[in-house]
Design a binder for these strands. Sequence first.
DNA 1: AGCAAGATTAGCT
DNA 2: GCTAATCTTGCTA
Length: 210
Amino acid sequence: MGEFPKEIVPQSQKFFEQPTLELAKALLGCLLVKETDFGMAAGYIVETEAYIGPTDRAAHSYNNKRTGRTEIMFHRSGLVYTYLMHTHCLFNVVSGGEGNPEAVLVRALEPRFGIELMKSRREIKELTKLTDGPGKLTKSLGITMEDYGNSLTLPPLFIAKGFSPESISVGKRIGIDNSGEAKDYPWRYWITNNKFVSRHQKAEYVVKNE
DNA sequence: AGCAAGATTAGCT
DNA sequence: GCTAATCTTGCTA
């Protein structure tokens, strides 16, 4: 780990073993780090969504559906679940524990390290459009399907300790309108007033930290 | 082997 | 707000 700034401290396996809704909140403020041959890029997680497979119609693993794509969700918490959506790779943290297919989708980051590298990958200049969406952040960090199934406690792709947000907003998840009742579950979390979130939405409620 | 759908994005009206 | 782009997965035959 000598090549990383010393403030980058990976989260432990234990961190990923909390209940999925708790983990989705706890991930806010954490640093998502990706290392490649071109260098390291990282950003603070500012927006997440929880997917509780067995009973959540919006989840790929709804009704415990187990396919080549969802297989990793049935494994231990803290692994990488990446999948392709149209032309984009989306990044999720496996949760729920062995045999319980749940996950947290990371939807937006606040760029922190390797910003020039991110800009070159996206071919844009505006900082606020670099990682404000699930497909944008994977392209900026260089996350691909090669990361599928790897552990998030170790390089090249891992989650490190960050800061504790003052306030967390809670709302409905994005882009799942055809998922029946599940579309209204308040399982989207974002750091209140953060300008890097993927979309502005009215919060169902707000959680203040002391 | 064929096909429909999709946890998105960029660009245009 | 609306639509095209673009391609893999998973389901049906």
